[in-house]
Simulated scan of single mutants.
Amino acid sequence: MKIGVVTFPGTLDDRDAARAVRLAGGEAVSLWHADTNLHKVDAVVLPGGFSYGDYLRCGAIAAQAPVMESIIKAAKGGLPVLGICNGFQVLVESHLLPGGLIRNEHQHFICRDQKLIVESNTTAWTNQFSLNEEITIPLKNGEGGYIATDETLKRLEGEGLITFRYKEVNPNGSMNDIAGLRNERGNVVGLMPHPEHAVEPGFGPDTKIAMRSGVDGLKFFTSVINSLVNA
């Protein structure tokens, strides 16, 4: 399966995302921000970083990039899209996911291994997880505070559109401890933590479970391949 990884000016984690795709058994395809051609990819990853220097608002300029015009159209047609950190910010700025992301409540950049609870395992990117499973993957952001109107929060909770919640520590003041979201169809998922940094034993968070140490993030990528194979 061909999974596109988008590079914007200022993207940092595109190579990590491409490696995660390959470790999961997929073929990583580089997509450039100025290109509208998605090269017949089967899914897309919007990786982390500081697209366009985070000018205006994080993800706001990237949401207007030529490649996003094609991705938005394809996502509305069912193309699986994963937004990680800055990619999540791009998804909300593109209105593929609701709400917004603002400066961390404590006003500082944070980098830590973060525990999450899986709230939805019926998406293209989470179907290899168990419901309510606890996972640990790295978190690194300065603008990760999720906000939404009361009406939107009520809809997210009522329709099961929250994919991940922070466990034990809410690191950035996100409303309702929200770490990640999905759309109604389940093909679009965004989250602030970085699964691409937890795909190899010994190179990710130590979960104290030998068979899982450092690899909780790999299931995001095996999930999408599984969903594509069984589509």
Rank of each mutant, 00 (worst) to 15 (best):
P138V: 05
E27G: 01
Y146Q: 08
E133D: 11
V215M: 13
D177M: 01
V41K: 03
A20Y: 02
K167Y: 01
L82I: 03
R212L: 14
A148V: 10
L96Y: 06
N176A: 15
I71T: 04
V188Q: 01
E93D: 07
I137F: 03
T122F: 12
E27R: 14
T36D: 09
T149N: 08
T222N: 00
H106P: 04
D35V: 09
D54Y: 02
I147G: 10
V188I: 11
D42F: 06
R112F: 09
L101P: 04
N121P: 02
S130V: 09
P193N: 04
V5C: 03
N121E: 11
K40N: 14
K219S: 12
V189E: 01
E119A: 01
A148K: 09
D42W: 05
G77Y: 02
V41I: 11
L79I: 07
P195H: 01
I71K: 01
V92D: 00
N176L: 15
G217I: 00
P66A: 02
N187E: 09
N121K: 06
V188R: 08
G4V: 10
P138F: 11
P80V: 12
D16N: 09
E105V: 13
L116V: 06
L191Y: 03
L101Q: 03
P80M: 09
A34Q: 14
V21Y: 06
L12C: 13
F220Y: 11
E168W: 11
G145K: 15
P9K: 06
P66I: 07
V224D: 03
V224N: 03
K76V: 00
I61P: 02
N187T: 07
M175V: 15
L161I: 05
A231R: 13
V169K: 15
L228Q: 06
D35Y: 04
G25N: 00
D150V: 09
A198H: 00
M211W: 12
D42T: 00
E143V: 07
I102W: 12
G202D: 00
E105H: 13
T149H: 07
P171E: 08
